[in-house]
Design a protein around this nucleic acid. Structure first.
Lengths: 108, 108
DNA sequence: CTTTTATTTCAATGATTCTTGAATTAATGT
DNA sequence: ACATTAATTCAAGAATCATTGAAATAAAAG
């Protein structure tokens, strides 16, 4: 992951609806959720939810799979992990100052 | 940090120029850099650099301090740390699946 | 083969963000 | 005061993003 790849990923995270979707999918676990249930959970119209799900899927943060009539979505943790790693290790060079004030990665 | 606070922060990170600024400031260390040097380093016009520095400063990722004629900028690692923590712990609920594929925070 | 369910795609509109270059503010030195 | 240096702010335009509701696609059931 480099800055050119990371920037659009941050752009996808820069939306409360999409953060809510991620949260819902994380809570749903490996089985994921279908579009309709996600829309309900985040109180968005089907079309609006679909718009945000498309953004999440295109950038690889979510994975889509058809299950008969429904479209199932789940989180791709590898992508989120790569982004966190970029921010921590590349962008901030694994700075001691960052580790000092961020619990994540502090015990390494 | 909650989703409402995190979303605009991700928006600020969603730009290659601004990621370059952060990188430059991290490399510069605690002394920071002045606006002109940052503009040169990232090959941007003064006005363009200023625009991005304003975005970084307003959201708290960078800290600005006047030093006589120059304006000095440095990274606020606490803000970046809080954002990483939000993404890792809140948004992804410290998911084992995430820890399994993200070196940062894997040894906890 | 028509209907129902699930979801996406489309078009129009509004809102936000980015870039550029010119004008402005701020601090310092002559 | 005036000039110089450092940086920001402003205005205009282009580009991107988000929302809405209607229309289209996909799969399954009657």
């Amino acid at each position: 992951m480099n800055a050119a790849e990371a920037a659009p990923l941050f752009g996808v995270l820069a939306n409360e609806d999409r953060l809510s979707v991620i949260r819902a999918l994380v809570e749903a676990g490996p089985d994921g959720m279908c579009a309709g249930d996600i829309a309900q959970k985040i109180s968005a119209s089907p079309s609006r939810a679909s718009f945000h799900l498309a953004a999440l899927t295109e950038c690889g943060i979510a994975i889509r799979q058809r299950q008969s009539r429904k479209l199932n979505y789940r989180v791709n943790f590898a992508m989120i992990g790569a982004l966190i790693e970029f921010l921590f290790e590349d962008c901030c060079k694994g700075s001691a100052a960052l580790r000092a004030c961020c619990a994540v990665g502090s015990a390494r």
